[in-house]
Computed example of a mutant assay.
Amino acid sequence: MSTALVIGAGPGLSASLARALKQRGHSIVLASRDTSSLSDLAQEIGATLIDCNARNPGDMERLFTMLDEQQDDLDVAIYNPSARNQGPIATLDPVDVENTLMISAYGAFLMAHHAAKRMLPRNQGAMFFTGATAGVKGFANSAPFAMGKFALRGLCQSLARELHPKGIHIGHVVIDGIIGSPANPESASGDEDFDNMLNPDAIARTYMHLLDQHRSAWSWEIEIRPWVESF
């Protein structure tokens, strides 16, 4: 059985991704700074939970060492964490800005660094990264988020050029809009009720479409947004 790793796991998009990957037959590993809220999901899909701060090199090395102990091939690695802090540039706390950059971009580098070591010997695998519109255009009073997501996009573009010819599929998914979730009172359960925000299950299906792409027609980046979203 092959392993699918989701870093930055939570109850929204990550949960939808985990369920979709489980349906494909993958063994699921969910990594998060605090996995205490993921026990129901883990029980539902038989996932392994690992506490891991993605911006911490020691935590990330320990995570991948634990993956090695499972003795399954790592086929899919998804990086979902991000952080944002907003405000006028003159009022931003430099420590908070550093944290945003470390979570949004440096942690993604760490995942790619360790995942590539496992995938390159087999010339096979996929790494997907959750991006945002802020990685394509920076908005006012949102400099830290823009910096982090621009860096993430640059990382993915570089990885695609390096690793696509070696059999490893890189995908950067630009999510333009608000993701619906049970915690959001404006969200609903049916597809028809997500007119103004993205259905996390629908986003997960898009990730699976990327995973199914034939290597003769790989995408390295795709944008998704609600049909009513202006852009």
Rank of each mutant, 00 (worst) to 15 (best):
A160V: 00
A140I: 13
G171K: 09
D176G: 03
A140D: 03
M197L: 08
Q157I: 04
E192S: 11
A134T: 04
N196T: 12
S187I: 01
S142V: 05
I175T: 08
G171Y: 02
S187V: 04
A204N: 09
A202D: 14
S142F: 06
R161G: 10
V174A: 11
R153Y: 10
N184Q: 08
A188F: 14
S187K: 14
G154V: 09
P144N: 08
D201K: 08
A143K: 04
F145M: 11
K149R: 00
A202H: 10
G190P: 10
V173Q: 09
S142Y: 09
S187W: 12
A134M: 08
S187F: 13
A146Y: 03
D191F: 14
D191L: 12
A160Y: 07
I179M: 00
D195A: 15
A151N: 13
S158Q: 06
F145N: 00
R161L: 04
H169A: 05
A188G: 14
N196I: 05
L163P: 03
P165W: 02
F145V: 15
R153W: 03
N196A: 14
F139H: 12
I170R: 04
E162M: 07
I178W: 01
P144R: 10
D201Y: 09
D176C: 05
D201F: 04
N199G: 03
I203A: 02
I179Y: 00
G190T: 15
C156L: 07
N141D: 13
V136I: 15
G190K: 15
E192L: 01
G190F: 14
P182L: 11
S158L: 11
K137Q: 12
A188N: 05
G177A: 07
D201H: 09
R205S: 14
A202C: 05
S158D: 09
I175G: 01
A204Q: 07
G171T: 08
A160Q: 06
R205M: 11
L152V: 02
V136T: 10
